[in-house]
Design a binder for these strands. Sequence first.
DNA 1: CGCTTAATCTCGACT
DNA 2: AGTCGAGGTTAAGCG
Lengths: 259, 259
Amino acid sequence: MGTERYASPDAETVAAVVGEALHAGAIITAEVRCEVEYDGRTSGYLGPGDRLLVAKPDGTVLVHKPTNHKPVNWMPSGGTVTATVGETSGEPVIVGRRTNPRERVEIRVHETYGLTRFDADDTAEYEESGTEAEMHDYIEANPEELEDDLRIVEHERETKYGYVDFYAADAEGTPVVVEVKRVQATLTHFDQLKRYVDLFAGDDGDVDGTEHSVRGLLVAPSASERVQRACRDAGLEFVALPDFETEADAANASLADFS
Amino acid sequence: MGTERYASPDAETVAAVVGEALHAGAIITAEVRCEVEYDGRTSGYLGPGDRLLVAKPDGTVLVHKPTNHKPVNWMPSGGTVTATVGETSGEPVIVGRRTNPRERVEIRVHETYGLTRFDADDTAEYEESGTEAEMHDYIEANPEELEDDLRIVEHERETKYGYVDFYAADAEGTPVVVEVKRVQATLTHFDQLKRYVDLFAGDDGDVDGTEHSVRGLLVAPSASERVQRACRDAGLEFVALPDFETEADAANASLADFS
DNA sequence: CGCTTAATCTCGACT
DNA sequence: AGTCGAGGTTAAGCG
């Protein structure tokens, strides 16, 4: 519910407050001058400079530079955080560790401008709309948006090499594999569809090239020229499905203003 | 260089300090109770709760819950941040906006437990080793680690469908396309290699499976069983290249201890 | 700008 | 625990 602030705390105070706060479920933020060392999936070193540190009770550690969305160094949740006083330096050392993968981040604090303990109480969950799952719902309810007389046979069909978004049939009864993307389609999305189509075609064993036993549809709001050409060359079809409108969108449309 | 702290500031102070600090190149952190609304690539709503806010002078905005590495809401760098006092609510409202894509995040602050201005001075750059780029350098210098008498012809070769990590030739002079991964290979990595090989093979050539005009090598420390099977089925080869040692690693090996 | 790809990607879902 | 795929992915590198 509240915060506790320590201005220019000494090393012992930093170590004590960080340890205690995290144990009690509070968030720690600190404005410091520090060096950082990471060892694990890769390894790296960040020389001295001013950064914002964040440590959460779930083991998350973040080191933020004055720019960029992503922290320059971090430890994901699930690990453990320790704060001690370095034996030789007498400075605070904050270490985040975890296993699987085995990795650690060590923050050597040269100066602590300020330290804040924040006992945050947050039970709300983030609610999001416009996800790919909603796009699937829309397509399942309106398959004619992709193609006349398209019939959805199965949603999220499992195959030997992964899940197909939709397994469908066209007006002629030819099987159609559908891969749906909420964002502009990329080459990896094309790859995904090609993998499924190759798999289905391989089952039937029709490789004479003149006739396709399975069609493949890549559905997205847009695709780069290269992706569209890749589709053409591979005998797959790109279908542009512009912004779809969900029921929630329609209900909120009148309220929306982008000021 | 230093911090300035405001305990339980009123709405006017929040708006003024945030605006001024960001303009002056300082980082703002605030412990607040707030609601958040996002509209852009998707849309979402986060109900009232205690969160840590971070705003950086480059337009970055982060809203952190007490758990998880990733912010629950955010605005990447490059946008603009405004802090005002809501006309009807009298509460602080912080809005981050950007274009391309057009999106905005609105933070309605119900209670400000604390606010910190941090004039951070950080010129150090993060130095990392163990990246895929280094793995490329290693392979280029030691192609025999992949296969005897393999000769690298071209690095990062651009093709109609993307960039090939290495274009090489084996002892027989047969072209070899090489895709390198620093981590365990996944199906999408297999897809990537298959895309290049299909391209070089012309996608029409020999489908009898007995002879290949182009070989494909997927190089990674490991690969799941499914990926290895996919490679076999597609006539591609998986090459396990365990942890390689860079010169930097060798030099530092004696210093490394994982305590 | 747009395109392509790596990333200590993170995270959730499912086997 | 491992694998797979989405993500408001972000960020870098190149044309």
